[in-house]
Amino acid sequence: MVAVVVLALVAGASLAIGARGMSIETVWQSLTQFNPDDGNHAVVRARIPRTVLGLVVGAALGLAGAAMQGVSRNPLADPGIMGVNAGAALAVVAGIHLFGISGASGFIWFAFAGAAAAAAVVYLIASMGRDGATPVKLALAGAALSAGLYSLMNVILVSSQDTLDRFRFWQVGGIAGNDWSVLVAGLPFLLIGATIVLVSGRILNSLALGDDMARGLGHNVPLARGVTALGIVLLCGSATAMAGPIGFIGLVVPHAVRFFTGPDYRWILPFSMVLAPALLLVSDLAGRVVLLPGEVPAGIMTAIVGAPVFVWLVRRGKGTSL
């Protein structure tokens, strides 16, 4: 309940704050009694797609991060670490370079395919050998594949100035400057992914006890993992296509949520879904005001917020089990 209120406040602030500040009344009026001739109302209205996009992308990343940590039993799991972002990014760059795609509705299919392919490859590599896909092997495979994919991507970017220009705007991760078409293109996938992940709370609770225990409790572990992974790929692929790779949200928010929910994924998932967009919108807001009248993309701001938390998690050391 508190979390929803926090999110509503942040969303309101996201409409009010920017290069041109608005009063709360102006925001409220523009939502309830829109006057097309009022310039202030128009500015607020123009910020709505951006705010809604922030809500949707943030929710997707929060859910995906929490589910990833659960399914891989890896506290450092994040769409970035597991190679899913890299796959999506490379696919988009390849799409720009080879097929000249532009605009998010073109990006989404490439991002989605790339994310799915990367996730599948990471899972296959990690599944080799007798123990199957252990958390450590998943993280190693993800990191190795990420490095490989990013260097391939750089090969393309270095060889083509035109691709680089078009890519740069998208790559840094920002929720600015997009309109409804992006949202409409990605939303169906995102909703399916969110549904899959939200109902997987009890599966993740059992997986947290170890694969053997989960099987002993009557789960089909490979199937459970595969279905949840599908949900994660849908979430990450569509979120990345909408806003570029935004890191750290999926890592930081679930850990913050654990402080007050404890280790029960039936609570961690919905709380992450509500609080991650709040963090993303706050990052986006901060990015709007730190360099007025210019802007810092949200992807950079989340990294500034998230990196210290990441370092703290690693230094704490005991976070090797979830």
Binding site: R73, P75, R202, N205, S206, A208, L209, G210, D212, M213, R215, G216, L217, G218, H219, R258, G262, P263, D264, K318, G319, S321, L322
Partner: peptide, 29 residues
């Protein structure tokens, strides 16, 4: 799983879980 129970050699206790919560997860089946 309602008839055949198992305690494997290396079960994992999630960080910060209470005893009651952990025991409760045995109710899943």
């Amino acid at each position: 799983a309602r008839t055949l129970g198992l305690l494997p050699q290396h079960p994992v206790a999630p960080d910060g879980i209470t005893v009651r919560e952990l025991v409760g997860r045995g109710r899943y089946p």
